[in-house]
Simulated assay, not measured.
Amino acid sequence: MSRPDNDWRQVLGLRSPTEDRNPRTEAIDQLPAADLVRLIMTEDRSVAAAVELAAGAVADMVDRAVAAIVGGGRVHYVGSGTSGRLGVLDAVELLPTYDVGEETVRAHLAGGPSAMMVAVEGAEDDVDAGHELGGSVAAGDLVVGLTASGRTPFVAGALAGAREAGATTALVSTNPGAPLATDVDVAVLVDTGPEVITGSTRMKAATAQKLVLNTFSTAVMVRLGKTYSNLMIEVRPTNKKLRARTVRMLVQATGKSPETCAAVLEGADGDVRVALVALLSGAEVSTAALVADGFPPDPRRVSDPAGVRSAVAVMAEAQV
């Protein structure tokens, strides 16, 4: 495959707003701490609005991710440096929150897992490593490239390899003129402008990418039926805080006492979804489990992707 020219003269000629000098912060090193902090925060205030302008593209990416997962595929985040680390952070936090692991969403960081803590020199320029990675995904997967500049060679290689493998591709970048945007199925381009410190894309660019990933993965999980209302019903109770959260969530959803919710949850062997159906319908746990099995999570059930409302409605009709 063709390789991006890594000669510094060529790179210098490729413009990205994140590399421009910010005229509002040129005197930043002359400010006392209070004014310095206010200046940084003022710049950060523009990020959420810039992300909101990309809402349509994010929604498109959500639909493609849901389709990939329902079809038996996975979502892959691919990136380097700060962008890649944000992908890792988003992916790993889905396990305790929604009981979703690498079998559904997986992050790939240039330089490997060790690059999460220590920068691996040259990893982001390794287009061949990216291409090999992209070529290893399955047809029907969704591969999301994360790069502030929109031209990182490792990400370019991964997206090219993924396309050759038959995967759907997406790009999240803070360069509205991202070179890689022309060859992906959906591009989320957020114009965050020049950074407070020139080229320090761990700042506004990273905040924008974090907001996009938060929105994207949360929306995907909701559409997959991982929530009832705004409550997490597939949280993995791996510690005391999360175990208490599951009981508190049942109390919030049903208005029942903590003691009742804890007892029903125990009777449901910790299955929050079954416990919720039982509590909302007033049925025995065994009956709730049977009916809930008939309404598994399904994003095509637009107003009830988790199936909880449908199960409860059927049981209410049976009691009339």
Rank of each mutant, 00 (worst) to 15 (best):
R3S: 05
V11C: 01
L12G: 03
R15Q: 14
P17I: 14
D20T: 06
D20I: 03
N22G: 06
P23T: 15
R24A: 15
E26N: 00
D29F: 06
Q30Y: 09
L31F: 05
R45Q: 14
A48C: 07
D60E: 10
D60F: 01
M61T: 09
M61Y: 03
R64E: 15
A65R: 00
V66D: 14
G73N: 07
V75S: 04
H76T: 14
V78F: 03
S80Y: 08
R85N: 07
L86W: 01
L89C: 04
D90K: 00
L94N: 07
V100G: 07
V100L: 13
V105F: 15
H108N: 11
H108R: 12
A110C: 02
S114I: 11
M116V: 06
M116S: 00
A123C: 09
E124Q: 06
A148Y: 05
T152F: 05
P153Q: 14
V155L: 05
V155N: 12
R163Q: 12
A167W: 12
L171T: 04
V172G: 06
S173R: 05
S173Y: 11
P179F: 15
V184F: 09
V188C: 01
D191W: 03
P194R: 14
P194C: 08
T198D: 03
S200R: 10
T201F: 02
F216C: 05
T218R: 00
M221Q: 08
R223A: 13
V235I: 13
K241W: 11
K241V: 08
A244K: 02
T246Y: 11
R248G: 11
R248A: 15
L250Q: 08
A253G: 01
A262G: 15
A262N: 09
A268T: 04
G270E: 15
G270W: 13
G270L: 11
L276N: 03
G282M: 04
S286I: 05
A292V: 13
D293W: 05
P296G: 09
D304C: 03
A306N: 02
A306G: 01
G307A: 07
V308M: 04
S310E: 15
A311E: 13
V312M: 05
A313R: 08
Q319M: 13
V320T: 09
